[in-house]
């Protein structure tokens, strides 16, 4: 049994597209909140770790500011987590089929070091928290 919201979604491709967008935003932000809760991190702490303002993080998490993949990667780095994205592959153009899917891992950037004598220095500048 479905409801009027399902009916509205299926009424037009435009509606279905909007729901798909909002579902992705909901799923991503819920996953971030889950990671924040598990780590005991607040929005303020997350903003500090990202070198951003709390307002900016709020906008990302409430969906009013579009989140780029780079921003998602930065959030995950700040949380010490590795994002995992899957895209179901549509095969015959009309129906979704179970089967192949591709996993794309977005890891943290590798650090580069320089050695001078007995001392090792990081050769990259880290952003400091605001």
């Amino acid at each position: 049994m479905s409801d009027f919201l399902t009916h509205w979604t299926n009424e037009s491709s435009e509606n279905a597209k909007l729901v798909a967008q909002e579902l992705l935003i909901t799923e991503v932000t819920e996953a971030i909140w889950e990671a924040m809760e598990a780590a005991g991190i607040t929005k303020t702490e997350l903003a500090n770790r990202m070198g951003a303002t709390k307002g900016y993080v709020s906008q990302l998490l409430n969906g009013s500011r579009n989140m780029t993949l780079r921003t998602l990667s930065d959030i995950c780095c700040a949380l010490g987590k590795k994002p995992s994205i899957t895209v179901d592959v549509e095969r015959d153009g009309t129906k979704w089929q179970t089967g192949e899917r591709k996993t794309v891992a977005l890891g943290a950037r590798k650090l580069r070091y320089e050695r001078t004598g007995d001392t090792i220095f990081s050769s990259e500048q880290w952003r400091s928290a605001a």
């Binding site: 909007l18 579902l23 998490l61």
Partner: peptide, 25 residues
């Protein structure tokens, strides 16, 4: 349309996972 889509998405996520965590949702 945007707000209807948001409500549809959030009730779908709630039905799928059993909870919503974000205070915006």
């Amino acid at each position: 349309p945007r707000i209807t889509a948001q409500m549809a998405a959030r009730r779908e996520h709630l039905a799928k996972t059993g909870l919503l965590r974000s205070p915006d949702h």
